[in-house]
Design a protein around this nucleic acid. Structure first.
Lengths: 207, 207
DNA sequence: GTCTATAATTCGATAGAC
DNA sequence: GTCTATCGAATTATAGAC
């Protein structure tokens, strides 16, 4: 049992920072609270990350990367087909990945969920720092929606996709207080939520 | 042009506080920034409101009161009828008031919208302070929905109404960057948004 | 009621020893 | 890489004169 490697130290800082940013927000989280929870030295944060804002961006990247990756992967599969995908298929490709990532890996999953909600809801400078990490997939999905629903203007579709994101974030945030991911099969639960959400939204999008 | 009356002082503090809370959040807003913008003394805030949290509650009450009042009023009208109201009628009674209040009174309206978003999204202690002021109407609307849609469990309906609130808040927040409330008739614009939102949601709720 | 002055903390960031 | 010590600035809140 030697001392912590630098990889451990970095990860401990990221874990503690994500949990505190998620529950208390960016402005409400002090670096001193982070080092207390991560059991590291205050200077270590500045050594590894440089500043509070850069630490936050590092946390955002760690959370967003697997979600955006899966979304684009599923979208690519849909685009490989010769037929245009349905609205429901597109929505499922957009909605399922964040729910999967959050539900598949407790105990960090619920924290990821709460943290994502903060990224979308918090004031300057949080949105400025977080939005670029999620923007790629959102732009690609908006593009395919304009192809599938040419009768609706891009402005209208952007408006609706924005509502989808708002609902998705809300679902993610209230999942920790839902009694799921306890004993039941995660896969089953995810499919259930995704299905209900897709039904809820598909008609509204297409209307 | 005498000095400010105490009513003016209080109102200037509330106006400045609401604008800053809305754009920078609770933790991101300092009382010194408030007094700078309101052009009053720092001690005046503590004299009139006691503390930063109590000032925030005062702002919440001022915003929530007219909205909740109108929602309950419209709901009471629906309940007076002999027939059960439709889902669309209920949703309209829930959605229209906040949009009306926000759009009817510029230039404070957009600030109200942004502030309401913060109340729903910010971490402790904001939600704890804000939720009670909006809870009354939400509880009453959930109750009437369980009457109109007895096939769905209260849990399911609470889940869906929560999504409606999430969408509504998102709409409110992006309204300031929408090009509305410029010259066009506000009434016309409100009816347009409400109609589109009700269509979007009604099917999802009923499904 | 309004003001100045200040107490008492807490913050992010850095310098420099080891 | 990790630590202690500390700087400079900002915060909420209060005491007390007018």
């Amino acid at each position: 049992m030697g001392k912590n490697s630098s990889a451990d130290t970095k990860e401990q800082i990221l874990n503690a920072a994500e949990r505190l940013f998620a529950s208390l927000g960016f402005a409400g989280t002090s670096l001193r609270a982070v080092i207390r929870e991560a059991d590291v030295n205050l200077a270590a944060i500045h050594y590894y990350f440089g500043s509070k804002e850069e630490l936050f961006v590092a946390v955002v990247r760690r959370v967003a990367a697997p979600i955006v990756g899966r979304q684009l992967q599923r979208l690519a599969i849909l685009e490989e087909s010769d037929n245009l995908p349905s609205v429901a298929e597109i929505l499922e490709a957009f909605i399922a990945p964040p729910l999967e990532v959050v539900l598949e890996r407790p105990p960090l999953g619920p924290i990821h969920a709460q943290f994502i909600g903060r990224c979308r809801a918090e004031p300057y400078p949080v949105q400025k720092l977080a939005e670029p990490e999620f923007a790629r997939s959102q732009q690609r999905f908006l593009y395919i929606l304009t192809k599938v629903l040419p009768n609706q203007s891009p402005t209208e579709l952007r408006w609706k996709l924005d509502l989808v994101v708002a609902m998705l974030v809300r679902i993610l945030n209230q999942m920790e207080q839902l009694e799921m991911l306890n004993e039941k099969s995660c896969v089953e639960e995810i499919e259930n939520i995704v299905e209900r959400l897709v039904i809820f939204i598909t008609v509204g999008i297409s209307a």
